[in-house]
């Protein structure tokens, strides 16, 4: 089992607090788009659709395979983008089947979850306990 963040979308209330603390931790910024976790709420044909996008640290990772510059590596089960090798081409963003990476204007390296070194901020701030950290 690889370490990763799991979101119980039934319990998620879509408050976006996870995104706020993620952008603080990784960019020292107030910007929900600079976040490795992304929550959206839609009602489609009378059905509520809460969508949580966060890296699953899959093995082997689709994003790494798509990267021509070998900028994506797996360290102790954690999929990591090496900033100095990344050119910001965005191929990995397109390759991820879970939509867990994203490109944001003015930020070269695509943004994704790095598990905060094993103590994820989003898990700690979630008011309903919907976000769980599953360690290896």
């Amino acid at each position: 089992m690889v370490p990763r963040i799991e979101v119980d979308t039934e319990r998620c209330v879509c408050c976006h607090l996870c995104e706020l603390v993620c952008s603080y931790r990784h960019f020292h910024s107030v910007s929900t788009s600079r976040s490795g976790i992304r929550i959206t709420f839609t009602i489609f044909k009378d059905d509520v659709l809460v969508d949580a996008r966060v890296c699953r640290h899959c093995d082997p990772p689709y994003c790494a395979r798509a990267c021509e510059y070998d900028a994506i590596v797996v360290n102790n089960g954690i999929v990591t983008i090496l900033g100095d090798r990344c050119t910001g081409c965005g191929d990995c963003v397109k390759a991820c089947p879970y939509g867990a990476l994203r490109k944001v204007p003015n930020v070269k390296v695509p943004i994704k979850c790095d598990l905060c070194g094993g103590d994820p901020e989003c898990v700690k701030v979630c008011p309903t306990g919907a976000i769980r950290y599953v360690s290896a």
Binding site: E10, R11, V13, C14, C15, H16, L17, F41, P127, T128
Partner: peptide
């Protein structure tokens, strides 16, 4: 009731 929903940055969701 089927689920609770909150507004942006709300620690006490009431929807």
């Amino acid at each position: 009731k089927y689920r609770t929903r909150g507004c942006f940055a709300c620690p006490t969701p009431c929807g």
